[in-house]
Design a protein around this nucleic acid. Structure first.
Lengths: 206, 206
DNA sequence: AGCGTTATATACTGAGTGGTATACATACCG
DNA sequence: CGGTATGTATACCACTCAGTATATAACGCT
């Protein structure tokens, strides 16, 4: 049913290549030409397939966020104990942030942290904010479940605890991008988990 | 002794204006023209006084870092208890990051987090890394003193604890830039301080 | 085959970039 | 006063940017 000349590239793999460039250089410092080169296509094909640079970024962001969210949700569900679940997620986050193949850190964090408020379009800001929120939603739900399960001190404010772990994750991203080693960041995670509000009946967790 | 026409602007105030622009828009998205406008001078004066855009950024960065470091050092020294000293510093950090007059967050963190590895010059990377390290030095020293004072559990690894607080501070910067309120971030600080390794003899700290 | 449709490739446009040449203004020193 | 040294202002340069017009190539359908 598809008439006309068929596309010579796979839009999803091309998006992955674009993502890598955005991750390494950031949105502002990335040129459309370098994107086209990395994607193995020429600029008109890029514009035809994705619209423009910003739309391409948002598409890549969605793809990235979906992958991250799925992985996190799986990890949070795998452990029955809330504290262990969160620690597993943080440890996996460190692994991802210090992956040699990537530029270090999280795309969403990097782009949120590192640039203009006015310069940026509304669509861009909304997409970043939405990605940030979606990422936190699973964590928030898991913390609430932990509270229900008695894995948390009774009067714990789940919103605050979620903001705390969001802070730690954002910080890990920054330090990873700054070249900190996986071992150092794993130790940071262990320290960060000391803030977990254990219920009274427990003395400590290994 | 100074011959020739005198300068019509104060280099330090001009630097402060430049800093504000860099903080708001980031290095890459800031144009030299917008800097000159904000500084109230014209481009040739800017180039004559500071060299080029990058040198101007580094000068502004030094000024910013010096201010931050001085303030932090003072706060860390003001409290005799190590835990309280660090908490005071973090609380003040939140206050600074959520100051309405600023763009939110820390310039060093924003610039470290949000951009290119290859695109950036060596001088830029070095300046950012140095600023980051200097900022941590005072904290590291304070933690070591706390350990000597018995404010820390005996076998605490000071390097790890410093990396942890650096992570929290970087995360606070990201969340502040993302528009989180001062109250929310203050609550995060309280939570973060739960990770402080209290010595055995103490039960808890208020 | 021939037609309509869609993808690719080259080459281009207008705007904006960092940086500067040139002309002029204002100071100190003799 | 003149001479020299410095700061300021306008206008410009070469370059890169995001985005596109135009021409051609490869498909399905009739």
């Amino acid at each position: 049913m598809t008439r006309g000349r068929p596309r010579e590239f796979d839009p999803d793999t091309a998006l992955d290549h674009a993502l890598a460039v955005f991750e390494r250089d950031g949105f502002e410092a990335t040129s459309v030409q370098s994107l086209a080169d990395a994607m193995g296509i020429c600029k008109p094909s890029l514009y035809a397939a994705y619209g423009n640079k910003e739309a391409l970024f948002i598409a890549a962001l969605h793809r990235y966020a979906a992958t991250c969210d799925a992985r996190r949700a799986a990890l949070l569900d795998a452990e029955s104990d809330g504290r262990r679940a969160v620690e597993a997620m943080l440890t996996d986050t460190v692994r991802a942030y210090t992956d040699c193949n990537s530029a270090g850190g999280c795309l969403i964090v990097s782009q949120t942290a590192g640039a203009s408020l006015d310069t940026r379009s509304d669509a861009m800001r909304d997409a970043l904010a939405a990605a940030m929120n979606d990422g936190r939603a699973a964590l928030h739900a898991r913390l609430q479940r932990a509270r229900g399960d008695g894995d948390l001190l009774g009067d714990t404010d789940v919103d605050v605890l979620m903001a705390y772990f969001a802070t730690v994750m954002a910080g890990l991203s920054v330090l990873a991008r700054n070249g900190e080693t996986r071992e150092a960041l794993t130790a940071v995670v262990t320290t960060a988990m000391r803030a977990w509000p254990l219920p009274d009946r427990q003395i400590s967790a290994s």
